[in-house]
């Protein structure tokens, strides 16, 4: 059953776990405020629409912080949370005995990577 002789191979999990953990911090620290402002207070009229005006948001995302505010926002509110989410989905699929192994793992992290690339691409495109 267990291999006492040969050494087991090193897993690549530290990479995914690091991304998962960083995304978990973002999910806990950044996301609540972002949803509160954009997803709840604005639709309820507690944040006036002008504050989310086209020019104002463009200015915030593309000009503040030397033009990197948008990049940082995409990283902490989209890309890292994506890796967090797909890591948990991958383990959830295993927990529910729906899917596991190489295929499920690649599908999950490829989705996270692809969506992150799209988000970063849109950040570039929106300039």
């Amino acid at each position: 059953m267990s291999n006492s002789g040969q050494q087991p191979t090193r897993s690549d999990e530290p990479i995914w776990w690091a991304l998962f953990s960083a995304g978990g911090v973002c999910f806990a620290v950044v996301i609540p405020g972002a949803i509160l402002a954009v997803g709840v207070l604005y639709p309820l009229g507690l944040i006036p629409g002008e504050m989310l005006g086209f020019e104002r948001i463009r200015h915030l995302l593309f000009e503040s912080f030397l033009g990197f505010a948008g990049f940082i926002f995409v990283g902490v509110a989209i890309c890292l949370p994506l890796f967090h989410a797909f890591h948990r989905i991958r383990h959830g699929l295993h927990d529910l005995q729906w899917a596991h192994g190489w295929a499920a793992k690649s599908a999950c992290y490829c989705s996270a990577t692809l969506l992150s690339v799209i988000a970063l691409g849109l950040w570039v495109a929106a300039h």
Partner: peptide, 24 residues
């Protein structure tokens, strides 16, 4: 573990928002 499902919804909203910002 399931908290990531609504999270994915909000991320989709944000990506949609970025797309909209790029479209004018």
């Amino acid at each position: 573990e399931a908290t990531v499902l609504p999270l994915l919804f909000f991320i989709s909203c944000l990506i949609y928002g970025l797309y909209s910002l790029s479209q004018g």
